[in-house]
């Protein structure tokens, strides 16, 4: 259990920093909320994309489901905020199971293409079924119930929500990383035939990973929805958001606990800074970063670091 207590200490440090940041003067809450949300979203994506090796470029669909469930659940179905988010998570799980059982027969890049298509169809539905979703014009969340007397439109409240969200996702990944499920996912990613020879049912592991990944992404979508308070299907369901989530995890290191979080920090903070310097260039920088990472650090920053440390530790032990 040494392994696990080590990661508990890391998590405690993460939460401590998160609690300390708002105490600094002049805290930019919007920036920090975005950062924490993307840490959570990218870490959730990584459960499927990194640990299980199924690259999805359709995760924006789950963000959309979470955000729209909050908005529609509270404003149209009269649910309280927590039930609405639970509804979103439930829908996400069902959707992931259906989606996965249809497409997990596809190999590699074909699976990725199918995720793009499915998210795109969902986006077209969100735009065209205006009677329910507000359509292309988007959806304003004008009022939200106040769970435990918390005003969900207040930036400080949203910040702590985002912190709880990011910390929970990280805790979840840490919990399985050193246990059976974590290794089953990695076995499926590395080689499905060999995984079967270890008694693993690859389809079942992939479905479980997809459901968990989708659920946590939808949870983040709920927090994101409260933060945005204006839901735009052109953003929430669209490919660029999916790409951004995937990219964040890939740059930091797929299939590592802290990789996606590092990726989020490296991408969100400079992107916010660049935004004021030259408005449109941040996507250009994203593009260059993807190229650099795939060419020179294909396993991501933390991924290459872990590999290096493993090699060095082994070499040292050998004398």
């Amino acid at each position: 259990m040494k392994r696990f207590s080590g990661s508990l200490a890391q998590l405690a440090l993460f939460i401590a920093v998160g609690l300390a940041l708002p105490l600094l003067p002049g805290t930019n809450f919007s920036l920090l909320i975005t950062l924490l949300l993307f840490i959570g979203l990218a870490t959730s994506w990584d459960i499927l994309g990194g640990w299980t090796g199924q690259t999805s470029l359709g995760h924006a669909a789950f963000v959309g489901i979470g955000a729209y469930a909050l908005a529609l659940g509270t404003n149209r179905l009269g649910l309280d905020a927590i039930s609405a988010v639970q509804l979103g998570v439930g829908v996400a799980v069902l959707f992931a199971l259906l989606w996965g059982s249809l497409t997990f027969g596809l190999r590699g890049s074909y699976f990725t293409l199918s995720t793009i298509a499915i998210a795109e169809i969902l986006r077209l539905a969100a735009i065209n079924e205006a009677w329910f979703t507000g359509g292309s014009a988007g959806l304003f969340i004008s009022s939200l119930p106040e769970p435990f007397g918390l005003d969900l439109f207040e930036r400080r409240v949203e910040y702590y929500l985002a912190l709880v969200y990011a910390a929970s996702v990280l805790a979840c990944v840490m919990w399985f990383a050193s246990g059976r499920f974590g290794y089953e996912m990695r076995a499926v990613r590395e080689d499905e035939a060999a995984a079967q020879a270890s008694g693993i049912n690859p389809t079942r592991i992939k479905l479980r990973a997809f459901a968990l990944s989708g659920a946590l992404t939808a949870l983040g979508g709920g927090v994101y929805g409260a933060y945005l308070s204006f839901l735009d299907p052109h953003n929430l369901f669209f490919l660029p958001l999916s790409v951004q989530i995937a990219l964040t995890a890939i740059i930091g290191g797929r299939g590592t606990v802290w990789g996606p979080a590092l990726g989020a920090t490296l991408l969100i903070l400079p992107a916010e800074l660049f935004r004021s310097v030259f408005a449109e260039a941040n996507l250009l920088i994203y593009g260059l970063l993807i190229l650099i990472v795939t060419l020179f650090v294909p396993r991501g920053l933390i991924g290459e670091l872990e590999r290096y440390l493993l090699r060095r530790r082994y070499a040292r032990e050998q004398g």
Partner: peptide, 10 residues
């Protein structure tokens, strides 16, 4: 397996 299939990253 005839062609060994270790889980390479592990």
């Amino acid at each position: 397996f005839q062609i060994e299939r270790p889980f390479e990253g592990l």
